[in-house]
């Protein structure tokens, strides 16, 4: 009996243990929980401990990170008290997204370098490029693209240190965005 309990414990414990990173194949994925599909480029890893949203990286989250997040209208955003609301134009949505980053007290010298309307899978979307510095003085660049589908905002963000890493994986981000679609039945 004691032997079976030990075996059961080992099985349960190994089942509970989650690795921080899972390799992703270069192919189209449907992330049903997120209600999206997109093609992941080669050699990217999914972070399993990143909380809500989908977070993938090639060389480690500090060096390159693509995050896909979904927000319901009126959902509390991490930094600003502003919210996405029904009836907002895509420029209004972009403005709230920018205000949310601006209100983040852990970054310095945040600047929006470009902010333009685009289309993603046929839907009106925004795209802005930005730069900031970390508390340690590391200069980073990023891009956020977002669209509204139903009563939700979907945002895809890419961030990497300005030197070397940003350009290195930028094309991977661009190809991911170009294949990005919201599934028709999203939760």
């Amino acid at each position: 009996m004691k032997k079976y309990i030990v075996i059961l414990c080992v099985v349960l414990c190994s089942g509970c243990a989650m690795t921080a990173w899972s390799p992703l194949k270069a192919k189209e994925y449907k992330f049903r929980g997120m209600g999206i599909k997109t093609t992941i480029p080669s050699d990217w890893y999914r972070n399993n401990l990143g909380g809500k949203g989908l977070h993938i990286s090639k060389d480690g989250m500090a060096l390159n990170l693509i995050s896909i997040n979904k927000f319901k209208f009126r959902q509390k955003l991490p930094h600003t008290e502003k919210k996405y609301e029904e009836g907002m134009t895509i420029q209004d949505i972009a403005d709230v997204t920018i205000d949310n980053i601006k209100a983040n007290k852990s970054i310095f010298n945040f600047k929006v370098n470009t902010n333009t309307p685009i289309t993603i899978s046929g839907l009106d979307a925004y795209r802005f490029e930005y730069s900031y510095e970390t508390e340690q003085g590391l200069k980073k660049k990023g891009i956020t693209c977002g669209l509204v589908e139903g009563k939700r905002v979907y945002a895809v963000t890419y961030e990497a240190p300005r030197l070397h890493y940003y350009d290195k994986t930028l094309s991977d981000f661009e190809s991911l965005v170009s294949s990005f679609e919201v599934l028709s039945i999203s939760k």
């Binding site: 600003t80 502003k82 919210k83 205000d99 209100a103």
Partner: peptide
């Protein structure tokens, strides 16, 4: 400017 951006 600041309070508008913060949503206050």
């Amino acid at each position: 400017h600041l309070v508008l951006s913060r949503g206050y």
